[in-house]
Design a binder for these strands. Structure first.
Lengths: 269, 269
DNA sequence: AACATCGGTTCAATATATGAACCACAATAG
DNA sequence: CTATTGTGGTTCATATATTGAACCGATGTT
């Protein structure tokens, strides 16, 4: 491992929960030699990546990261940084995939990608995704800000005969999303389309959008569902990472449980 | 110079104007060896500080900086990161100093610091600074968003007999701030106080606030004015840096000219 | 077909990173 | 009023990781 990598790794130990770290403390956390760590910190300090609290001598993140983040945010739009994982997802599942972002109480389509594998494809050609009827929408209601539930309740347009049109069925559906970590819209927007989705998180740590796969219903077997979920997880992690966020451990836990149970179902059936 | 420092220096070459840089190009810009630069970029890529545009192979800032910036923003408030330069300023000038931030059309006091050097001190004990009558306010009008001028015009309260109360005198005063790079409130808020200020900038590149020195009028000689301006510049650079910004070169130019002319005045008088 | 780029790789030479032991200081504890 | 234990910071011989000229294959230009 290069010394550059080692030095940069030190930065990963700073968080809102542990904003300031002393030299000795950091050595323990990172399991590193003190002299080396000290020199690494000095190099990071020169570059403005860390600074020392003058009163406590503890180190904390420096102002340079603000500048860099500004540049990154200004030059790499969310869409571009979601493109690659989206393509991989469509490729791996053989189904059409979407990335949506939440703005206010509206779920906007940010990017989509068709797989070339099958002749029939799910074409979702809309700008905004209904909260109650699409996998992305349900994911947003389940993991986004609370007022989204009200927004969803206030527009329960019926698209198919399985669209949740009552407040009770909507709440039950959202509840199951919160339990499994996946949004699931079973032919509730288009009669021939099964939607599965996973939440995305950005640098604020908040829900920022969703990644979804729209599968042609006739192909939607338990095996495909399992495959889609596996790749949704990969894509969600990657896009969240590109947006400066991480998947909360609670969600990771839901996914882990959700996948093992699906797997059981798959092997016992 | 350590290899860590050298690697981190590479990041300074990325900006909104030059968001993506190829390996060879970066070597020319940074005047570095190609093999070394390549390895440094690899280390930065592992840590997520840069990433490669898959299609062009060019490098750009990576998602990690977003996370770090989030943590920095959440854990180091503006006030804390302005404190030290503010103290140094008060110390160096022997006068009371303030940091103000702009929020909407209001200039709020963020922090202040008294010098212990003199028995008499300028005490500015307010939460919000009048736009037209204080050095910080004038600086905000001069370098902040345009609508501030309207806000200033709509409240021309007379505090002293030199307070600019007409739209014409206000505009003339602001004009001179734009010419010199320094806000100057000559006994226009308190009869015994001369105020000098300089603008502050944050990571968005926009005007974010002002740093000011309130000097007791009887002490306010051309020599002191020159000293205050010198140290205002230092403080403004430092606080802006701590907020993730830099002083625009136009302002730096104004200051340079402004200071040499003051110096001439000082030596010829 | 010759030439000039590009991103990426190799390997011997050596400059640079390393860490045990060492300060000086501050805050406890006995 | 010492010990003790913690801290941030420093030293220096050792050795390991960094370095850059030269090289490669690919792509594009003249």
């Amino acid at each position: 491992m290069s010394s550059v990598t080692k030095a940069l790794q030190l930065l990963t130990h700073f968080s809102t929960a542990r904003a300031e770290i002393g030299l000795s403390q950091l050595c323990r956390i990172a399991k590193r030699d003190k002299a080396t760590t000290y020199r690494h910190l000095q190099a990071l300090e020169i570059a403005g990546f860390v600074e020392q609290n003058p009163s406590t001598k503890q180190y904390r993140l420096g102002p340079t990261v603000l500048q860099l983040a500004q540049t990154r945010e200004a030059t790499v739009p969310r869409k571009a940084s979601a493109q690659r994982p989206l393509l991989d997802l469509a490729e791996a599942t053989g189904e059409t995939s979407h990335v949506t972002v939440l703005s206010g109480s509206t779920v906007y389509g940010l990017a989509s990608c068709d797989s070339q594998r099958h002749g029939t494809r799910a074409i979702i050609d809309i700008d905004t995704f209904p909260l109650h009827a699409t996998a992305s929408g349900l994911c947003s209601v389940a993991f986004g800000p609370e007022q989204l539930m009200d927004a969803a309740k206030s527009n329960l347009t019926q698209f198919t005969d399985t669209t949740p049109t009552s407040i009770d069925t909507l709440q039950a559906t959202v509840e199951s999303v919160r339990k499994t970590g996946f949004g699931h819209a079973s032919r509730s927007f288009e009669t021939e389309v099964e939607g599965l989705s996973a939440p995305l998180f950005d640098q604020t740590g908040q829900f920022a959008g969703a990644i979804s796969v729209a599968s042609v219903a006739t192909r939607f077997t338990p095996e495909l569902e399992h495959t889609i979920k596996e790749h949704l997880i990969i894509a969600a992690r990657e896009i969240s990472h590109n947006w400066g966020g991480i998947i909360p451990t609670t969600i990771e836990g839901l996914w882990a449980r959700s996948l093992t149970s699906t797997h059981k179902l798959e092997t016992t059936s």
